[in-house]
């Protein structure tokens, strides 16, 4: 018997898609461990949706809310999580490697004195134990590891597994009474900002334009594409020089060094000055009309073509995809 507890997340009253993804994977693992999946949903606002987790494999959902749990705090949430673990005694605890999940599970694992494997790209069961793979050295090596202790803990990188088709099962929803106590690091305010305004250096997705954009007006195409995928706008030095974008958007040797998951370079030839600032991006996409442009030698995916045609179509396709 091996039960799995997953930490589900929610925002604006909706359960995160990656939590369904995690529920799906957890139920696969639980099947092998001959156990069940319990989901924990901490905080206010998504209790009504708790049942949805059942569609993706959780047979039980525990909700825990309290005035002090309105915002995520490591102290408050880890107290709840460790209390729930003490009550439920799961063999495996999984979370998503999101900004909340990574933080919460790390604090909890330490509190419980058990091992946590962060940011896993694969999870499986081997000899009745959770076995994970995760990249190290900026993806230049992969390790296989077993987090030790009971429960075994891991966070899974979002978008690693497909979200399973929802079933009609409905789980039992249980309310967990809790008092997180005094919180020493309190969230005072949450400032929402437009995704495109996010600083380049911390952006997960970047869409950059080069001089080939031709004018500041045409640069709007870049901004629209960025907006569609929640990316920050970047620019090559030449585009900044030409006045299409301000200097704080400049990516490259003398601009910002960025390291996003996805970097889309439009009309950027890929001089070393630019490459120096973005070549460690995980996935690089290039759109350029010159098939000889050096950017293609660094790109994972390339489209040789007129960016004024390709970029607007991409924007539409992404919008459609992300609306689904």
């Amino acid at each position: 018997m091996g039960n799995v507890l997953i930490v589900a997340e929610h925002a604006n009253g909706k359960i995160k898609k990656y939590s369904f993804e995690l529920a799906g994977k957890a139920s696969e693992l639980a099947k092998e461990l001959k156990g069940t999946v319990t989901a924990l949903l901490i905080g206010e606002g998504a209790e009504a949706q708790a049942g949805e987790l059942g569609h993706y494999g959780a047979s039980k959902v525990i909700t825990a809310s309290h005035a002090e749990l309105k915002y995520y705090t490591p102290e408050g949430y880890s107290k709840v999580l460790s209390d729930v673990i003490a009550q439920e005694k799961p063999d495996v605890v999984l979370g998503t490697a999101s900004s909340t999940g990574k933080d919460l599970l790390a604090r909890t694992a330490m509190r419980l004195g058990v091992g946590l494997a962060s940011d896993c790209v694969d999870m499986s069961v081997s000899n009745g134990k959770l076995l994970v793979s995760r990249p190290v050295y900026a993806g230049k090596a992969i390790i296989e590891a077993i987090p030790e202790g009971i429960p075994q803990m891991a966070t899974s990188r979002p978008n690693t597994y497909p979200v399973p088709a929802p079933q009609s099962d409905s789980p039992s929803v249980v309310v967990f009474q809790t008092d997180p106590g005094r919180i020493k690091a309190r969230v005072k305010e949450v400032v929402e900002s437009e995704a495109g305004m996010m600083d380049l250096t911390e952006a997960e997705r970047i869409v950059s334009g080069g001089r080939a954009m031709g004018s500041a007006d045409n640069f709007k195409l870049i901004k629209e594409l960025a907006k569609a995928i929640g990316a920050t706008v970047g620019a090559s030095r030449a585009a900044v020089d030409a006045g299409f974008a301000s200097h704080d958007h400049q990516v490259g040797q003398t601009g910002k060094t960025v390291n996003p998951t996805l970097y889309i370079a439009c009309g950027i030839s890929g001089a070393i000055q630019h490459l120096a600032g973005m070549r460690t991006s995980k996935v690089i996409v290039a759109v350029n009309k010159d098939p000889e442009a050096p950017i293609f030698s660094k790109a994972d995916y390339g489209i040789v073509g007129d960016l004024f045609k390709v970029v607007p179509i991409l924007t539409e396709k992404f919008k459609k995809l992300l609306q689904e």
Partner: peptide, 18 residues
């Protein structure tokens, strides 16, 4: 920018840090 180049030269013996 110059610091970046100098650090890169220090760590990887070239200004781009490759």
């Amino acid at each position: 920018e110059a610091q970046t180049a100098l650090r890169n030269i220090e760590n990887n013996s070239n200004p781009w840090g490759i």
